[in-house]
């Protein structure tokens, strides 16, 4: 056996245990969840009996007719959209400012990244208190109280307990989006910063000699170079957003008429409060499909090039 072959064999056997574990704990378990989602296990007694009765896609059909789940899907869509836009927008903006290497920019960089180190549960608890509306107009609380003190009372509103919406977009999601952007925008900023710093200095200098303005340099040179980073950031933030749970659980719960409800919250409730294991599994599989639609093409393109 050649050295090369020996090495390849060793490589395979090193990976094998991990493959087996991932095979069981990811792929086989997903299969089991799919199986549960097509069963009649919608009560504790059905589970105890353990008799598997196949009901086809009934649990899925019911979910799509369920107004709460419909709300959840819309909420996920809008939350993801604004969470992404917020993180990418603020991240890119701040990265460009920090990149000017002003005095103290290291301090700002660290500060903006700080929230990353903290659990969503902590974040949710604190922001939940800040955005608690109080009994308007007489007893404002949190940020509403701050508005009052600053003479901005007209900006007071019900925040995450508001039941107003624009089309399908529940306004109550705004404070949740703010909290999520607060947490993750620093991360995106750091990614862009690394990207900016990797752009060869000569490139910028050359275009400056050619008389390009700052704006032109930004759009014509920097942005195209940063495109892979934008893609990475969107993948990371996007898949996080599709399965968001902790932040909502700690901050708002599902809210009045489920204005801040998400599939993950509904799934948790179905599984652990209502004993509807089959319905809960169906929600989980729908969540998985949403993530897969984003991730599989990404993985495919990432690994297609390198053999």
């Amino acid at each position: 056996m050649s050295v090369q072959k020996k090495k390849a064999r060793a490589g395979f056997f090193i990976i094998l245990p991990s493959l087996i574990f991932i095979g069981i704990f990811v792929y086989y378990f997903i299969f089991l969840t799919v199986r549960t989602s097509t069963s009649n296990w919608n009560s504790f007694s059905a589970l105890v009996k353990g008799e598997y009765q196949f009901v086809g896609l009934r649990n899925y059909q019911r979910l799509f007719k369920d107004p709460r789940f419909q709300t959840d899907l819309w909420n996920t869509l809008f939350f993801t959209l604004f969470f992404l836009a917020g993180c990418v927008g603020i991240g890119l903006f701040l990265a460009n400012i920090i990149d000017k290497k002003l005095k103290g920019s290291n301090f700002f960089q660290n500060l903006f990244l700080f929230p990353m180190a903290i659990s969503y549960v902590v974040t949710g608890t604190v922001w939940g208190w800040i955005f608690a509306p109080g009994n308007l107009p007489s007893d404002p609380q949190g940020i509403n109280l701050l508005f009052q003190k600053l003479g901005l009372s007209k900006f007071q509103w019900m925040w995450y307990t508001s039941t107003k919406s624009i089309g399908k977009f529940n306004l109550a999601l705004i404070p949740v989006i703010i909290a999520a952007v607060w947490q993750m925008s620093g991360y995106v900023m750091a990614m862009y910063l690394a990207g900016l710093r990797a752009i060869p200095e000569e490139l910028i200098e050359a275009s400056q000699v050619d008389g390009a303005t700052g704006t032109q340099i930004f759009w014509k040179i920097k942005m195209p170079m940063l495109r892979p980073i934008t893609l990475s950031a969107m993948i990371v933030i996007g898949h996080m957003s599709l399965k968001i749970f902790d932040l909502i659980y700690a901050m708002t719960g599902s809210g009045p008429n489920n204005v801040t409800d998400m599939p993950a919250i509904y799934m948790f409730e179905q599984m652990f409060r209502s004993n509807r294991y089959a319905t809960a599994s169906a929600i989980a599989i729908i969540m998985l499909l949403m993530v897969a639609v984003v991730i599989i093409p990404y993985l495919y393109y990432s690994f297609r090039g390198s053999k």
Binding site: G11, F12, I22, F29, I295, K307
Partner: peptide
């Protein structure tokens, strides 16, 4: 080794799944 990239991608997928989809099993 052969298919090491493909197998790696299979492993990597586990990082993105919503853990809800494996929770009950």
């Amino acid at each position: 080794f052969r298919y090491s990239n493909f197998l790696f991608a299979l492993i990597l997928f586990g990082m993105f799944i919503p853990y809800q989809s494996v929770l009950f099993p």
